[in-house]
Amino acid sequence: MAKINNDDDLTQDERWRAFAQAAQDGDKQSYSKLLSQIAPYIRATISHSLANPEWADDITQEVLISVHKSLNTYSPKRPFKPWLRALINFRRADYLRKYYSKKGNEQTSLDNPEFIKKYVTEPSLADEYIDVDRALKEFTDEQRNIFTKVKIEGHAIKDVAEELDMSESAVKVSAHRTLQKLRGLLR
């Protein structure tokens, strides 16, 4: 076992490995140090890959709880970081899966101030989103559907064409023409 007292001589991974081993033996102080040291590492690892930075803290907490639950699966013979990273990736994927599956069932309106505050990137532009939403009502269902899928939701042309049983070029042309007309309406 690496000596925890000589912190300076150890790499970060060796130090965490030693803390984890001590934690498995019931050393609460080492465990607290381990969790305190890995928390910023977890946050730094995930924050760049999340659409909403606020999720980082939620996921960090879930990873810390996972470390606690699965401490017995860590073997001090192996490096600590790959084990921790596996937990981070698992909990991040789990969090995003739950979030987006829940979001799929939620419907809201752009008139909802809470939604705008939370999800519209630039709240000052919220009125423009509402204008776009209104202007789209001037179009046929098909045009609106294609435009929404391609230009707003960002689906691939190929997927939309397959879903609507149309050719890819017809989808492209429809989305482009709707965009042109929309520009005219909003000018």
Partner: peptide, 22 residues
């Protein structure tokens, strides 16, 4: 949230029990 993480760490450390690695 940082306070929450600190209190979570405190709680988890308090709950620690010896565990035998697999």
């Amino acid at each position: 949230e940082h306070k929450n993480i600190d209190s979570l760490i405190e709680g988890l450390s308090g709950d620690l029990q010896c565990c035998k690695p697999l």
